[in-house]
């Protein structure tokens, strides 16, 4: 049994898998789920890591297995693909909106702009997810998880997290 219906069925099932660290997002919103293919009688689920040391990748693999097994799919394997490298540019518009509502600022610039800004030191201001003001400042580029930075809004006087450009 291998037709496109099965593949889109599996893809649909997998869009329910949440990110363990940011449960408001699914692995599809984040762009971690790269592809589903049927190769030699096995469904190959291709995922790509976000940060190299992200401890959530293991949990994501386990969550994918859980969803598939619960739905009676046994002939699958999860494969990690490295290229092209994951980027926050792949976070969907819906994903960005969900992040904002959850209180996390979505990435403020594209990866390319960000890499240029590293050498020049000119970074775009991050809009506060609570009040929308850009009167904010970076407190630390490193936060509670590898993918987040800490900011402070000088307008509504709230600390907030930003999903880092990557």
């Amino acid at each position: 049994m291998t037709d496109t219906t099965d593949i889109s069925h599996i893809r649909n099932l997998l869009t329910q898998v949440q990110d363990p660290e940011v449960p408001v997002l699914t692995i599809a919103d984040l762009g971690i789920l790269r592809d589903v293919e049927f190769v030699d009688g096995v469904y190959e689920i291709k995922i790509t890591p976000t940060f190299t040391g992200c401890p959530a990748m293991k949990a994501i693999e386990e969550n994918i297995s859980e969803v598939l097994v619960e739905n009676g799919i046994q002939n699958y394997k999860v494969r990690m693909v490295m290229s092209p490298a994951w980027t926050t540019d792949w976070i969907s518009e819906l994903g960005r909106e969900k992040l904002r509502k959850y209180g996390i600022a979505p990435p403020s610039q594209s990866t390319e702009e960000h890499l240029k800004a590293i050498l020049t030191g000119k970074n775009k201001a991050v809009a506060c997810p609570f009040c929308g003001s850009v009167n904010t400042r970076l407190t630390s580029a490193f936060g509670s998880t590898a993918c987040k930075a800490l900011h402070y809004c000088d307008h509504c006087r709230q600390p907030f997290e930003e999903f880092k450009c990557h």
Binding site: F51, M82, A85, T87, L115, I118, G121, A141
Partner: peptide
């Protein structure tokens, strides 16, 4: 493979440079 690992790593290293 090395190119893929490097492309991924350089984005992390960028933060290390800034910090």
């Amino acid at each position: 493979e090395l190119a893929a690992i490097a492309a991924k790593s350089v984005k992390e290293v960028a933060y290390h440079v800034r910090h």
